[in-house]
Design a protein around this nucleic acid. Structure first.
Length: 654
RNA sequence: GCCUGGGUAGCUUAGAGGUAAAGCGCGUCCUUGGUAAGGACGAGAGCCCGGGUUCAAAUCCCGGCCUAGGCUCCA
C-alpha cells in the first residue's frame, strides 16, 4: 500500500502503458479494473488483479500516470496462481482459527510464495497429524464458496478490529505512517488485514495441499520469537497438483544423498562427526577423475603444485586478517602454549610460500595450485549432505603477478573455467562484481583491474551482468553461475583479484627498475569445491555419470556359468577401463537389471555365440544393444569416449 | 543456534507397552539361463546414546547426539 495518491479534484486524464507498449488514456481516479473495462468488457469482468510496474495489486487499486499496467485474469497463469494461493493461505488461517482456540492463536503473515503459500501463527501447537484435519476444513471453506470481500478501513477502525492481534497491530503501526486507510479481506465469518489481491470467492480455489510445518522467526529475525509456519500449495486443477507432487518426488529421486548411498560414493556418519564426509572407493574414483581433469588443465597452464598443512599457528591467521574477520567460522584450539587453527582458506599458506624467497619481475607470473582441504565451522542447521559441509576441498589456485599481467592471466583462467563447464554440458552466466564501499587498494589499481576484467568479458560472446559494489573488499571478481539439469543455479568457479593479501604479507618482486614492487594476487577455482561440484554432478546426471567419470565403466555379463571363462578373458581385454564381471548365479535378466540399477554405462554380454565367434554383444544404459561387436572396435570407441570426456555413452547412439 | 518431523538388519521401510517384521542385497543349494526380478533354505538387529516411569520400554517421559525440511520472495 505505498501507491502515490492520484491527483484529486480534477477531471484530469492520465495514461497507462499496456504490455504491448500502447497507451491507454483513463480518468485520473481510474482503478485497475476500470482500465480493464476500458480495454474491453470481457476483460473487465474477467479481471482478478493487476500488475502495476511489476507489482501485483488488487483490481480496486487506482492506477497512476505512466504506470505499466498488466491485467491479471483467471487464465491459470503464474500471476493468477499467486493470487489464488494468497486466498488459499487465508483459507488456511480461517481453518486454523476454526479448529484451534482463536483467542490463543495469533495471526502473523500469510503470503504466496513461488511454490505455494504459508501462514505464520503464534501460540499454535500443531503436528503433522493435524494437517489432514486442517486440510478437510479448508476444503469445506472452499466448498462453501464464500465471497471474498474487500473493504477499505480507517487506521483507527483497523486498530479496533485488530486489538487481539498483536502482530497485525505491529504491521498496522508501520502502515499508519504512510496511509490513511488500510484494506481488509473478509470471507464468511473471517477477516484479515491484507493488501490483496484475492480471487472473487473461496470456491475459485482448486486443489489445496498442506505440505509441512516449520518454525520461522517473526520477520525472519532470530532475535524475535519463533512462530509456527504451515506451508501449503494450491493449483487450479487437481492434475496440476499431482504434477507438482510428482516433480517433488523426481527431485527427491535425484537427491545426491540418496544416490550417494545407493552407489556407495560417500557417507557422513554419526561417529565421525557432522559435515565431515567420508569418500568410499567408488566416490573417490569419481573425485580422482575430476582431480586429474583439473590437473591436466593446470599443467597446460603452467601451474606448480604445492601442498600445505591443514592446521597452522594462528600467527598466520592474524597476518592474513582471517583472525579478525573470520574467526567465528574457524576451528581454533590450543596446543600447549600456542594457539592453532584449521585452515578455512588456502591463500595464506600459498602467500607464505611465495614470501619465502625473492622474486624478479622475470619470474612472474608464479602460479600455485593445490587441492586444498579447508575447514569452516558453519552453523549446524546449515549443514546438508555434500552441499554444505565442515570440511571440503578447493581446487585452489593462487597467482602472483605483475599488474600488467592481469588481463592475460584472467583470460587464461576464464578459458579453463569455460572448458570445465562445457565439458559437463552446463549452461552458465558470468557476472562482474565491482568495488564495494569498504575496500583496500588505490583508486588507480581498482580502476585498472575492473577495466581489464570488463574488457576480458567484452571480448567473450557471452553476456554478463554487473554486480555493482559486490566485489570482495580486496579486489574485483568474476563469478560464474551455472545451471544443472533440473534448472537449479549454482555458484562455483570464480576469478578474484586481490590487492590486500600482498599488502598484509608484504609480498614483493624486483622490477626492471631495480625497485621493489607489490605483486597482485589472483585467487581462482575451477570447480569451486569438489564437494559441492560432486554433489551437483550426482544430481545433474542422476548418478548416471559420463563414461570417463563412472566408478564402474563396464560390466561383463556371462549368459551362463559355461561362459565365465570367456567373460574373464573379455574383462582382461578391457583392463584399461574399470570393468567388473557379474559372476553371480542368476539369470541374464537379473544381471541386466542389476547393471542398470547400478548405473553402469555399458554392459558386455557374452554367451556361446559370442564365445564361438570371438566377439561380444554391447548394451548401453539406454537399453540399446548390438550383437557381433568386434572387441578392438569397441575398445577404440571407449578410448575416444573417455579421452574426449563425452557426456553420454554413444557407441550405440550414432 | 532456533522450530517441526525422523533415527528399527548392509539398503528401503513396517511395527507404537507383552517372543522384533517385510522387500532388496548377502550366503548355501537346486537351476545354466539370450536381453529389466526362476526357485528353496539360511545368516544378518546394542531398535541412535544416557537417564526415568513400569512387573514389563524399540514403543511412554526427560536430556543428549545425528539427520531432513524451515527460519522476512514484507498485511
Amino acid at each position: 500500500m505505498s501507491e502515490s495518491e492520484p491527483e484529486s479534484g480534477s477531471q484530469e486524464r492520465i495514461a497507462v502503458v499496456l504490455p504491448d507498449g500502447s497507451k491507454l488514456e483513463v480518468d485520473a481516479d481510474a482503478t485497475v479494473e476500470d482500465c480493464a473495462y476500458e480495454i474491453g468488457p470481457g476483460l473487465g469482468s474477467d479481471t482478478v488483479a493487476g500488475k502495476l510496474d511489476g507489482d501485483l495489486v488488487a483490481k480496486e487499486q487506482p492506477v497512476y500516470d505512466g504506470a505499466e499496467l498488466e491485467i491479471v485474469t483467471d487464465d491459470g497463469g503464474e500471476e493468477y496462481l499467486r493470487v489464488m494461493r494468497h486466498s488459499a493461505s487465508h483459507c488456511l488461517a480461517q481453518a486454523v482459527e476454526r479448529l484451534f482456540d482463536d483467542d490463543e492463536v495469533k495471526l502473523a503473515i500469510g503470503p504466496p510464495t513461488d511454490e505455494g503459500f504459508y501462514y505464520d501463527f503464534d501460540n499454535l501447537d500443531v503436528d503433522e497429524d493435524d494437517l489432514a484435519e486442517i486440510e478437510t476444513e479448508i476444503e469445506a471453506i472452499v466448498e462453501a464458496d464464500y465471497e471474498i470481500e474487500r473493504e477499505a478501513v480507517s487506521i483507527d477502525e483497523a486498530k479496533e478490529r485488530l486489538e487481539d492481534e498483536p502482530y497485525k497491530l505491529e504491521l498496522l503501526a508501520e502502515f499508519a505512517d504512510e496511509n490513511e486507510q488500510v484494506t481488509f479481506y473478509k470471507q464468511g465469518e473471517w477477516e484479515d488485514l491484507c493488501a490483496g489481491p484475492h480471487v472473487d470467492s473461496t470456491g475459485e480455489i482448486g486443489a489445496v495441499e498442506l505440505l509441512e510445518i516449520a518454525g520461522a522467526y517473526w520477520r525472519g529475525d532470530e532475535k524475535n520469537e519463533m512462530q509456527t509456519r504451515i506451508y501449503g500449495t494450491a493449483f487450479a486443477e487437481e492434475s496440476d497438483l499431482e504434477d507438482f507432487l510428482e516433480r517433488k518426488r523426481e527431485a527427491e529421486k535425484r537427491d545426491h544423498r540418496r544416490i550417494g548411498n545407493e552407489m556407495n560414493l560417500f557417507s557422513i556418519q554419526d561417529v565421525t562427526g557432522p559435515g565431515l564426509p567420508l569418500y568410499h572407493p567408488p566416490g573417490k574414483t569419481v573425485l580422482k577423475e575430476l582431480e586429474d581433469f583439473v590437473e591436466d588443465l593446470n599443467q597446460d597452464a603452467d601451474y606448480d603444485y604445492v601442498e600445505t598443512p591443514h592446521v597452522f599457528k594462528t600467527d598466520l591467521w592474524h597476518r592474513s586478517g582471517h583472525y579478525e574477520n573470520y574467526a567465528d567460522d574457524m576451528f581454533i584450539f590450543d596446543v600447549g602454549d600456542d594457539e592453532f587453527g584449521l585452515k578455512p582458506m588456502n591463500c595464506p599458506g600459498h602467500a607464505a610460500i611465495f614470501q619465502d624467497q625473492s622474486w624478479s619481475y622475470r619470474d612472474l607470473p608464479i602460479r600455485y595450485a593445490e587441492n586444498g582441504k579447508v575447514y569452516r565451522k558453519e552453523q549446524r542447521g546449515e549443514l546438508s549432505g555434500l552441499s554444505r559441509v565442515w570440511s571440503f576441498t578447493i581446487d585452489d589456485g593462487h597467482l602472483f603477478i605483475r599488474p600488467d599481467q592481469i588481463r592475460s592471466e584472467v583470460e587464461q583462467i576464464m578459458d579453463m573455467i569455460t572448458d570445465v563447464l562445457e565439458t559437463f554440458d552446463l549452461e552458465y552466466e558470468m557476472a562482474l562484481a565491482t568495488r564495494p564501499e569498504k575496500s583496500v587498494g588505490s583508486d588507480e589499481i581498482w580502476k585498472k583491474a575492473e577495466d581489464q576484467l570488463r574488457s576480458v568479458l567484452e571480448d567473450r560472446e557471452h553476456d554478463y551482468e554487473i554486480e555493482d559494489g559486490d566485489g570482495a573488499f580486496y579486489g574485483p571478481k568474476i563469478d560464474f553461475a551455472f545451471e544443472d539439469a533440473i534448472g537449479r543455479s549454482w555458484d562455483g568457479p570464480t576469478v578474484q583479484l586481490d590487492f590486500n593479501m600482498p599488502e598484509r604479507f608484504d609480498l614483493s618482486y624486483v622490477g626492471e627498475d631495480n625497485e621493489e614492487h607489490r605483486p597482485v594476487m589472483i585467487h581462482r577455482a575451477l570447480y569451486g569445491s569438489y564437494e559441492r561440484f560432486f554433489m551437483m554432478l550426482i544430481e545433474h546426471y542422476e548418478g548416471k555419470f559420463p563414461f570417463w567419470l563412472a566408478p564402474e565403466q563396464l560390466r561383463v555379463l556371462p549368459i551362463s556359468d559355461e561362459n565365465l571363462g570367456y567373460a574373464y578373458e573379455i574383462a582382461g581385454e578391457f583392463e584399461q577401463f574399470r570393468v567388473e564381471v557379474d559372476d553371480r548365479d542368476s539369470t541374464l535378466e537379473r544381471k541386466i537389471r542389476a547393471a542398470h540399477d547400478d548405473r553402469v554405462p555399458y554392459q558386455i554380454i557374452v554367451g556361446d555365440n559370442e564365445e564361438d565367434d570371438g566377439n561380444i554383444s554391447v548394451r548401453d544404459r539406454f537399453e540399446d544393444q548390438e550383437y557381433d561387436v568386434e572387441i578392438d572396435e569397441f575398445k577404440r570407441h571407449l578410448e575416444a569416449e573417455r579421452d574426449e570426456r563425452r557426456t553420454e555413452p554413444d557407441f550405440l547412439q550414432d
